[in-house]
Simulated scan of single mutants.
Amino acid sequence: MTEGSSDTLDLEALRSFVAVARLGSLAAAAEQRHRTVSALSMQIKRLETRLGTRLLLRGPRGMTPTAAGDTLLGEARELLRHHDGLVARISGRGLSGRVRFGLPEDYASRLVGRLLPDFLAHHPDVVLEAVTATSGDLARRLERGELSLIVALDRPHRLIGGEPLWRTTPVWAGARELALAPDHPLPLALHPVDCPYRHLGVEALEASGRPWHAVFTSTSIHALETAVEAGLAVSILERDRLTPAMRELGEAEGLPPLPACEAQLHYGRRVTAASWPAVEALGELLKQRLGRRE
């Protein structure tokens, strides 16, 4: 390949393609990239001409990648990440901008204790704001543009286009010596209505015809665990959160099986161009550290 070869890809065109694929809209991508829609459209067309294939299709959900576009999307993100990292290392300028990250409280200790400090150590100029909330609340805040990216479970508020991280293992949890009366409503300790585990537990109970009532409701996972350990109520917890004072309940206690959820990574659609490299860097770190968990 000679210098100036027609096979060379334009990095700025790749950035525009990634923005359109992520945002699903030429107008939104143009606003983020500080370009006109026509300029962005021309960049995409030149990229498609260079590669000899269609990369994006317009549909009812906006602009979506073709099969070739999906392949290019992953490779383009990796190429741009390496390019920007190289420029930062040589020039001495690291990532900057503001990253607003949302995550469920149940997983906060794993992320806040290890992953987030590592991210800030590598990118000290990034302003990071991390918040915890239920998955449903996080999804709505992402859609309103209040968050840059979130880790959330795929219910009760389903978002389109999430990148899978791991599968959860919800179980019925009760105190070690708890005895349940099968003819009495099941006493439950629950998160508020936006909680995925509350949603799937109540759904399973109602499908099986098992009556229940909420004895204890709290936004705090630690408060729910205390209520379970004290024998006050049964709750739905991740299996690895069971303590020695708890036991897993199931068919023997007349409780229906619980389906798994999927933890997913979602990016916001209103991230500024200046902050997007930092947002993507945190997203990549999340996928590297969490993507292999089952």
Results as ranks from 00 to 15, higher is better:
L116H: 05
L115K: 00
A204Q: 07
V228H: 10
S208R: 12
A223G: 11
H157T: 14
R144D: 13
E206I: 08
P164M: 05
L149A: 11
P192Q: 09
G145K: 13
H123M: 00
A121Y: 00
D154W: 00
V215L: 04
H199T: 10
L115S: 01
G145W: 07
R114T: 11
R210T: 09
L180F: 09
T168G: 07
E229K: 12
V127F: 14
P185A: 15
E143D: 03
T132A: 05
A223Q: 15
R110V: 12
D125E: 11
L190T: 15
Y197V: 03
R155S: 15
L186C: 13
L142F: 08
A230F: 07
P117V: 07
L128R: 00
S148P: 11
C195G: 09
I160S: 14
P185S: 14
L180N: 10
S208T: 10
H122E: 15
L115A: 01
H123Y: 08
R198Y: 04
L153W: 12
V215Y: 02
S135T: 03
G145P: 07
L153Q: 04
D183S: 14
D194H: 11
I221D: 10
L120E: 13
E143P: 06
T219V: 07
L186R: 01
R144C: 00
R141A: 14
D118H: 02
L178Q: 14
R158I: 13
V215K: 08
H222W: 10
S220Y: 04
D154V: 05
F119N: 04
L224Y: 02
D194E: 14
A227V: 03
T169C: 11
A130I: 00
L115P: 04
E203A: 09
G136M: 01
E129S: 15
L128M: 12
P211H: 02
E206Y: 06
G201E: 03
V131F: 10
G174Q: 10
G162C: 06
V131A: 12
V193E: 14
H191N: 11
L186K: 03
A121H: 02
T217Q: 15
H122M: 15
V131W: 03
E146A: 08
V228C: 12
P156R: 08
S220P: 05
L111S: 00
D118Q: 15
G201W: 01
D125C: 12
G136Q: 06
L200K: 01
L165T: 06
A152D: 09
P182E: 04
T168S: 13
T134Q: 14
R158S: 08
W212P: 01
D154Y: 03
H122A: 15
V228R: 04
L186I: 02
V228N: 07
L116S: 13
G113K: 09
T132I: 10
E163Y: 09
P164G: 02
S208G: 08
G209L: 10
E163N: 12
G145S: 12
A204D: 00
R114C: 07
